[in-house]
């Protein structure tokens, strides 16, 4: 099991810096593990604790939130709020028996493509050492069915 464990990692990236850094990592043809998936948000200030927790509930092994460098948030202070929320999520993870290290906040500029790839590798390595999330098995394989019941907009 440990041998083949490929952690699933979700990244919330802000549009102006982290997402652009991930774009640049691509333009530079850097390499990082394929199990890191990115959700774009306008600003990391949009990321709520519930999003982080929900990701774990959905079976990911690690989550990171990546925003602009501190003091350089496109929306002035969203990344500082995100940092607080990540810390809050860590506390909750700890209280339910998960390692808080499974969740992390990063700050990078849009020119830091290399750094983005590093973060992706770092997080993968970190989660590999921690092992699979205990919530992993709890996920129903047909979780898709659940959203079929969502009210469809419009």
């Amino acid at each position: 099991m440990e041998e083949t464990f490929e952690p699933q990692i979700l990244a919330f990236c802000c549009k102006y810096c982290a997402y652009a850094a991930a774009d640049l990592a691509g333009s530079m043809r850097l390499n990082y593990p394929a199990n890191v998936k990115i959700i774009q948000v306008p600003c990391t200030g949009r990321v709520d604790v519930i999003h982080i927790l929900k990701a774990f509930e959905s079976g990911v092994d690690g989550v990171f939130v990546a925003g602009c460098l501190e003091g350089e948030c496109h929306f002035l202070k969203g990344n500082l709020m995100a940092k607080r929320r990540v810390n809050q999520a860590k506390e909750i993870l700890r209280s339910v028996g998960l390692e808080p290290e499974r969740c992390e906040m990063f700050n990078l500029s849009s020119a830091m493509g290399v750094r983005f790839a590093e973060i992706a590798r770092e997080m993968t390595q970190r989660i590999k050492e921690l092992g699979p999330s205990p919530l992993r098995d709890k996920v129903k394989p047909d979780s898709l069915k659940k959203f079929l019941e969502y009210p469809i907009a419009a």
Binding site: L10, K54, A55, S58, L144, F147
Partner: peptide, 11 residues
Amino acid sequence: DSQILAMLEAL
């Protein structure tokens, strides 16, 4: 929230 959570559900 519903839109972001839907993506997470589908992870």
